[in-house]
Design a binder for these strands. Sequence first.
RNA 1: GCGCCCGUAGCUCAACUGGAUAGAGCAACGGCCUUCUAAGCCGUAGGUUGUGAGUUCGAUUCUCGCCGGGCGCGCCA
Length: 588
Amino acid sequence: MAHDSKTQLTALLQQALASVAPAAADTPIQLERPRDPGHGDFATNLAMQLARALKKNPREIAQRLLAELPVSSLVVKAEVAGAGFINFTLDSGSKTRAVKTVLEAGEAFGRSRLGGGQKVQVEFVSANPTGPLHVGHGRGAAYGASLSSLLAYAGWDVTREYYVNDAGRQMDILALSTWLRYLELHGICSIDFPPNGYQGDYVRSMAEQLKTARADRYVRPAEAVLAATPGIPDPARDDPEAKAQRESHLDALIANAKALLGEDWHAVHQHALTQQLSDGRSDLEEFGVHFDVWFSEKSLFDTGLVARCVEKLENAGYLYVQDGAKWFKSTAFGDEKDRVVQRENGIYTYFASDIAYHLNKYERGFDRIIDIWGADHHGYIARVKGAIQALGLDPEKLQVVLVQFAVLYRNGQKASMSTRSGEFVTLRELRDEVGNDACRFFYVLRKADQHLDFDLDLAKSQSNENPVYYIQYAHARICSVMNQWGGDAASLTDARLARLDNPRELALSSRLAEFPEVIEAAARDLAPHQVAFYLKDLAAEFHAWYNAERMLVEDQELKLARVALAAAVRQVIRNGMGMLGVSCPASM
RNA sequence: GCGCCCGUAGCUCAACUGGAUAGAGCAACGGCCUUCUAAGCCGUAGGUUGUGAGUUCGAUUCUCGCCGGGCGCGCCA
């Protein structure tokens, strides 16, 4: 059995524990890799954990544990330190063995069975298809994609899903906006474009496509379009009354459009939807973000699931009618207030279709469901979990990760990111400026719950100083060395690794052995940034070694050992970067 | 006002689910290219972890109170 050092050491400690404190034999063994190399290769706080139960001095317990520790060739030195830590220094052969393990496992090194093949669904991005993706969506995309790969690597069966909001008012507004621009293109300029419509240039280009494909088929007289609309209030006014009037003006325009266009309304609607959807899709694909399922909100209505869902809640006694609307008693599940699922006008709320969507997720048999939402949706968690509980499902299966906002700065000024106003930086623009690799890496370089200040000027002007290049550079250097070495890569597994004996080489080997632990910890915490930081550390240690020692030396045996180490580093960089969706060029 | 998230070096961020002397990058300063890629390396400097208490062997981490910032509190999506 080729156990790794950590597993072996854990087993040794368990034996010692069993004889020192049989009553506490189930105490979990925590082994950490100390930051300070002077503290050895592994350290455990086991004695301190036992201190209270045994009512003894931790250092004394540590001494007794050491006395009972079975003899092993693995441990070169074990000593009590500090308040009661036990520090272990391992045999160098056990460290360099990682090189061979990496080379033999190749792409599979770091994979684990932590997830046990369980089915997990990760839903992310799910932006309304009403305009280009912006930098905020980019963060969700990068995080979700990296997390999905990470979970897959750690042994889960992952389904990546995008929830398409193709059923609501926002889509109607987009269709209307497109149509109004289309009318403008046909010389109908007497209709003021509503300020709360979609202003972006992409709307105009969709209108042009419509004109090219359908000529004047959708043209209607301006008077009919504006019939019975309340009109647009003075732009300077932002009182509630004015706001309400703008919204009802928009709704009246939509109603008129539907009436005037009849079946053609669906064609315009569909055109806008498919156009935006395919635009977003190709944007994400170029960004290396793939989805297995594109789930339509509209389908939830078409199959009657929303209605069935509401009925289920009603039968379970969690619905009541007030002011003509149907309310869900989410306060029964800890929410601040009850929520409407069906409005007075009979239209279901977004919440209703979201309940149905989650019911559908559960019915598809996932063992675990992860929703990745923007932080502005945090108030939404209680009601969704409440509804799940009301449907008799286990709310613990659902995990919501809130990704904090990416706030964009340009010229030291906060840039707006509203899709409707049209003043936003798109993900595509960002990728063009900064590059996909730097983008993916930059996004995932911080915890999801950290606010992200994205300084566009900095990202553009200093893109060469982005940490991603640091890691890619290490990879390129190794490729270059291996080209000059020119040997057969397969022969590297036979290298005499005992020749790797300087501290840098041993530290680098240990670092490689740590990779699987990093993967598991990151997967547990849903924190792909830990992988990114690990890769930075690995690259740093490699660069230091590279500058200190030469690999292509005269001594054939030493050369082979060093090239093997470099090849193993390269492999781990590839595995880690691949997970984060970042490429590894062979030269830079 | 209530709820969620956050506060760590001048700036951007880490810190292995409570561990040892809190670490990186950028910016600043000083060194290293006739030998494998200088997008690199080595060194110097930079901190009362917002603040005050509590919990214990031990707190950046957990609890509470303040201070400061972000977001949310619709029959919007």
